[in-house]
Amino acid sequence: MAKVPVQFTLNGSEKAEFVESGTTLLNALRDKIGDTSPKGGCHQGTCGACSVIIDGELRLSCLTLAETCGGANIKTTAGLAEGGVLHPLQRAFLDGFATQCGFCTPGMIMAAKVLLDRTPNPSREDVVEALSGNVCRCTGYEPIIQAVLSAARANSQNVA
């Protein structure tokens, strides 16, 4: 099959790759570019482990074709820390023991980031709604919900 060129911005740096037509963004990120922070769970859009942010929107990279991402601005969990300092969400997940096996964590953090970008002071119901597309098998969700609420509080204190 013919390869197709695709160019996009990943966590602030320009990427240019040739991919097989039909390659998912998930596979392009993991296998071509080496960003393994999005995880391949179900590969059919139901578990949320592959979530990334494309032009500010939460997207499932397993259902997104890489060749449709030309010119897009893509963010993954691997690009969240700045200058070696963890993002408030990462810090809150770490401090709140909101991760066990860790497989769902990057997707959870992406979903939470889109929520906090739009709703800086979410209610518990907002958080539950935002995470409802992401599956976790270990934590029972409560520590994750608490971590997102705690990151929101930390953010609002920094702003104030």
Binding site: C42, Q44, T46, C47, V127, V128, E129, L131, S132, V135, R137, G140, Y141, E142, I144, I145
Partner: peptide
């Protein structure tokens, strides 16, 4: 047929624990 159809409580179904 797979884990997608294997029911478990989601974040909206949590009991106070």
């Amino acid at each position: 047929t797979d884990f997608n159809q294997y029911l478990m409580p989601g974040p909206g179904d949590l009991a106070e624990t």
